[in-house]
Amino acid sequence: MRLLKFTFLFLISSIMVYSCKKEKPIKDLENRDPIPFNFIIPAGMPPMFIPADNPLTVEGVALGRKLFYDPVLSANNTLSCAGCHRQNFAFADSTLQFSVGITGATGTRNAPALFNLGWEKKFFWDGGAATLEDQVIGPITNPIEMHDTLTKVIAKLQKHSLYPPMFKKAFGSDSITTKLIMKAIAQFERTLISANSKYDEYKQGKIKLDEQEWNGMQLFIGEKGDCNHCHVLGSTFTDFEFRNNGLDSVFADEGRYRITLNPDDMGKFKTPTLRNIALTAPYMHDGRFKTLKEVINFYNSDFHLTATLDPNIALQKRGRLNPIEINDLIAFLNTLTDKDFVSNVNFSKP
C-alpha cells in the first residue's frame, strides 16, 4: 500500500513538474531553431572571437550574404556593400582610389579589402567602429556612401517579400531591427576567411617557394626589409595596431586621432593585412600608391619623420634595399594571393 501511495504521488508530481515546463510547441520547419554554421578555422590561423550574442548560423550567414549584395540598403536602391567591396579584388573596390557613393560623391579613404575580419579588433582605417556589427551601419548611413537612414532601410526590408521570413528563420522574429541587420551582415563577413595562398601551401610543406620568393621572405622577416614587425608573418599578416607609417609630415587626414583625440594617435592608421595584397591596389589609407613597387620604394626611402612616426620605421636607414631586393619582396608578396578565396562560390552574389 505504501508503495502504491508513493507511486501515485510520484506520478502526480511528475505530471505536474512536466506541466510546469515552458510551453515548447513542436517546431515545424518554419519555426525551427537556426542551424549552427559549420565554421572551420583553417590550420595555422588563431582562434576567432565570436560574440556570444551573435553565433554564426546557416540562416544568419545566408541572410547577411543577401543583404551584403542587395542595393536595397542604399537610399536610391542602386548601391550594395558589394558595389565597393568586390570579391574578385578580395572585396576591395577594383582599382579605384576612392569609391563612389550614390550621389557621385567620393570620400578620402580607400575601400578596405574584406576578409579575416573576425580577427580584427576595430574597424575602418581609424578604428572608429568598435565591432564588426557596429561597422555595418557606417556605410549605410554615410551621406557620401549609401546615404540611407536606418528607419527607411528597416521599412524597405519589412515590406519586402523575402526578408521578413529570412529574419524569422535566422533570428526567430520577422520584426526587422537595426540590431538584426548588423548581426546578419557581421555573420556573413566573419565567414570570409582567406588562408589558402601559395605561402600557406609552402608553410604546410606542400610546395616550395622559388628562389626569388624565398629571398623576398628573408627580407620580409629580416631587419633589412623589416615588414614583419607590423605585418606579422604567418597567419593574419597584421598586428591590428594603429601606426603612423610616415606617409606625411602634415596630416591631411588625422587618422586614429580623429577617434581618440589623443595627440599620440596623430596620423595613425590600422595596419592592414598583406594577404591578397596583389589584388587590392591601390595602397595606403588614401590609395595614393598604385603599385607594390611604389609602396616599397616609399618604405625604403621616402618616409617622413614626425613625432608619432612608428619607431620601427624611424630607426631604419633610407635606401637600404636595392632594386633586386625590392623585386624579391614583391615576388614574396605575390605568394599571399588566395585564388580559392576570390572564386569561392559561398561568398559570391546569392
Binding site: D53, A129, A130, T131, D134, I137, I140, T178, M182, R258
Partner: peptide, 22 residues
C-alpha cells in the same frame, strides 16, 4: 556606450549614435 547592437532607445535607428565612431 561602445556598441550599437542594442535594443530600446539604444537602437541606432533613433539616430543618436555616431556610426563612424561608435
Amino acid at each position: 556606450n561602445h556598441t550599437g547592437v542594442q535594443d530600446g532607445y539604444l537602437d541606432p535607428s533613433y539616430g543618436m549614435i555616431w556610426s563612424w565612431n561608435t
